[in-house]
Amino acid sequence: MNSILSVSNLSKTYNNIYALNSLSFECNKGEIVSVVGSSGSGKSTLLKLIAGLEIPDNGKIVLKDKPINDESIFVKPEKRDCDIVFQDFSLFPNMTVDENIYFGKNAPNNKSMVGNLVSLANISDTLSRYPHQISGGQQQRVALVRALANNPSLLLMDEPLSHLDSALKEKVRSELLSILKKLDMTVLIVTHDAEDALTISDKTIVLNQGRLEQVDTPRNIYKYPKSEYVARLFGKTNILPLKLMPGSKHSFKQKSSDNKMVSVRPHQLIIESGTNSSLPKIKGQITNIFNNGHSYNVEAKCEDLVFMAEIKNGSDLKIGETVTFSIELD
């Protein structure tokens, strides 16, 4: 493995509260790694520590085999071989797009590479304009090109898509991914949006109150969350007791009750036409039905357990009816 970034035992406190608590992980060459967590999980602090905009209390950061932070070393942000893209893009409003792109210290030495980037990102028409004169999607790409033009070993991105409206978001996301993959760039993306993490990254790190909660491929994290926190972070889910489905590949202890639980996504609950399948079952009385166009979101109650199922053919269901749901495990 070819490690670009290695973080070990990184800690940072603000007013005696841990923003990051002994965090360790690695990013390998060409990997897109996402850092996911709710607000206050410490993900933005992590980015600032790597960029050199904050000084850690403890721990070590190694970038391309060169320590940039440990007990005796602090490399200034301008000397670090990494660049950052903020969620507001932070294009310098007093400079044209062209001036913005060539602002990086290394950019003027890599004219041909920058030229390629500009055509790759399809922003050649905007070069002579000012940032406020171009669209949000263009601004995003300019910010990306500006960072890449400086030829960094590691690209840091802070919520790169959260500023865009949802229609634009998907398009920009796929453009972004294709550019980064073409360049074989190593990227660390901080996001609160699990969907971004799922679609873009090769590896996902979940942070909770400054601690590492889980590291895995995004697919695995979605399917096999290690805690209720992770499960809920990655979309709608039902936290059901493990005893209902002993065959489950994953489970976690619920913090409050110490019971072993399983995350079951709404689409994993189905209503079978036959009755004799071997799938685990749960009976519930329907309390609410919402039609969202392509399927029915069914809210049901089984004793004090409330759960939500996404049913394709739910037109016959009625509120108050008691139904048996089957649980599809992988």
Binding site: P77, E78, K79, F86, S90, K105, N150
Partner: peptide, 14 residues
């Protein structure tokens, strides 16, 4: 502080 942070990460001194 984003402008400043970006500019510094792009290799310019304070």
């Amino acid at each position: 502080s984003h402008f400043i942070n970006v500019a510094r990460s792009l290799g310019h001194s304070g």
